[in-house]
Design a binder for these strands. Structure first.
Length: 526
DNA sequence: CGAGTTTGACCTGCGC
DNA sequence: GCGCAGGTCAAACTCG
């Protein structure tokens, strides 16, 4: 539980101006954070989430013995004093020479930074909020368009291609193009280019698109029409043709996100990775070809939550835990759970937005062979004809190469729908920090999915760049206060890997990012 | 005693 | 139609 209390970090933590202007101030901030942390632990994490963005911590700088100011928000009171008295790097003589002038200057600076922090938080909150709304609208529009395309096949071929492109451009915060369906030959190169943010690639293993769904398009097309309802309420209807027919109305609202799955591979000795949600096991089954049983879990955080997950160890490497998520939560999520939830919903949305591009009973890949998620993975179990994204968190920094798609599968920089917390994927992080993940994964306590991703993001100096790109894509050219690009510099300068910004504001995204960042710090070996 | 887990039975889809 | 495999159900069981 303690780990949950310590997962806060704001992207202003890296406060450029502080560092530039005063190492003293920088250090002092960290000091104050350190002192705040124990205080935070006594707070209700969820209720304090919006107040605690300034509670940066996890900087193990060894300055923990000052009285500490828990009022960094109201920083005008104590912080300055603590600054001068508590920082080991500042001699008393120095303090005497630059007494109150510097003190007040620092105070002012802190106030300014707090102000700016607040401003940026609210801005990002607005951005993420707007983005989520737009995403829902876009998906709905896309799926309706796909439906129209089925009625007008000729127009569909061209229309869908452009639709896909525009969707992907929208989804992909970066300068797109990697998924340009019209340029299959060049997509590889572009993929690599995008990953220049290199490391922002995850492997997509798209199981062959649901044959049944595709082939029955005329009868089931309604099921993909409305993508707005991401909270499918029942899995049961999935496999029941009767229900499919008798509950067409329901299918309309539930269809799109039901079949997409997000599979996460992570090294973990624990039987279960903690993803922040509460799960209840409802079944276990021996899967063919795998000596390890597959466990079935259902989300119990809310009554009727449709989210389920399957957990199974990899047959080849039993240290790898494969967790497959399906569905979207119909309830608020704790910070620790939002990352995965966002990821699954985003990935599902992406998959399904692509899958809707098929028509007339033909698989998408037949029309757009270059679409990564339209490709098939024949080696995967044929039992799950769901489009599945696999986030492979077990690989090292060279995973981009290692995970080059087999002929039947494709890899591409996942446009996580503006969920940048996964853009800094662990496996693609810089080599220097790639050890963070294994260290945690095989650590003393049960490995956490969140931790793994946390380490990934924290270890990726390009993460902020990706975030900035995502933000700028969403909101247009950066304004003077956005300073997105600055974050990049900050992060690149951040050697301790805590530069990963937390998105403020959004009840989900912010928290998830915060979780990631701080956890990475928390878990760093002393 | 309630919540969670275990486990065998059952349902469904798919291939032959 | 039959068998197989994945997925789910639900009674029995365990645990705090």
């Amino acid at each position: 539980m303690e780990k949950q209390h310590s997962r806060e970090l704001t992207f202003l933590h890296s406060g450029d101006s502080l560092r530039q202007n005063s190492g003293v101030a920088d250090r002092t901030l960290d000091d104050s954070r350190d002192h705040v942390e124990p205080h935070i632990k006594e707070m209700d994490f969820f209720s304090s989430q919006y107040q605690s963005h300034d509670h940066h911590h996890h900087h193990q700088e060894g300055n923990t013995n000052n009285n500490g100011s828990s009022s960094f928000i109201d920083s005008s009171v104590n912080i300055g004093l603590n600054l001068l008295s508590s920082s080991p790097g500042v001699s008393r003589a120095t303090n005497e020479e630059k007494p109150k002038a510097q003190e007040s200057a620092l105070k002012m600076e802190l106030q300014k930074l707090n102000e700016e922090n607040r401003r940026l938080r609210s801005m990002l909150y607005q951005i993420t909020k707007n983005y989520n709304e737009l995403q829902g609208q876009l998906l709905m529009a896309l799926q309706k368009q796909a439906h129209r395309n089925q009625q007008d096949q000729k127009d569909a071929v061209n229309g869908m291609a452009s639709t896909i492109m525009s969707v992907q451009q929208f989804m992909d915060p970066r300068p797109s193009a990697a998924l340009d369906v019209n340029e299959p030959s060049g997509s590889d190169d572009k993929t690599q280019e995008l990953s220049a943010s290199p490391e922002n690639t995850i492997e997509i293993v798209s199981k062959e698109y649901d044959h049944r769904m595709v082939q029955n398009m005329p009868g089931k097309q309604v099921s993909i029409e409305d993508g707005t309802d991401q909270t499918s309420q029942s899995w049961g209807s999935l496999k029941s043709p009767k229900i499919d027919q008798s509950k067409n109305e329901d299918q309309v609202s539930e269809g799109p996100f039901r079949k997409a799955r997000v599979s996460v591979r992570a090294r973990s000795e624990a039987p279960l990775i903690s993803d922040g949600c509460q799960w209840r096991k409802y079944g276990q089954k021996m899967a063919k070809g795998n000596p390890c049983p597959r466990a079935y879990y259902r989300c119990t955080m809310a009554v009727g939550c449709p989210v389920r997950k399957q957990v199974q160890r990899c047959a080849d490497d039993k240290s790898i835990l494969i967790t497959t998520y399906e569905g979207n939560h119909n309830h608020p999520l704790p910070p620790a759970a939002t990352a995965m939830a966002n990821t699954t919903s985003a990935a599902a949305a992406m998959l399904l937005s692509g899958s809707t591009k098929s028509k007339d009973g033909l698989p998408t890949s037949a029309y757009y062979p270059s679409l990564p998620y339209a490709s098939s993975m024949a080696t995967l179990s044929a039992s799950a004809p769901f489009p599945t994204i696999t986030l492979d968190l077990t690989q090292g920094p060279n995973a981009v190469q290692l995970l080059r798609p087999p002929p039947s599968a494709a890899s591409f920089p996942l446009p996580l729908h503006g969920y940048p917390q996964l853009l800094g994927n662990p496996m693609f992080g810089p080599p220097k920090l790639s050890t963070a993940s294994p260290a945690m994964q095989l650590g003393q306590r049960p490995a956490s999915m969140v931790e793994t991703v946390t380490a990934a993001i924290a270890s990726d100096p390009n993460f902020t760049a990706a975030l900035a790109a995502a933000i700028s894509t969403i909101m247009g050219p950066p304004r003077n206060q956005g300073n997105s690009s600055n974050n990049n510099d900050e992060n690149n300068n951040s050697s301790n890997g805590v530069g990963a910004p937390a998105l403020p504001g959004s009840p989900q995204i912010q928290q998830s990012c915060t979780t990631f960042s701080s956890k990475a710090c928390t878990n760093k070996p002393g």
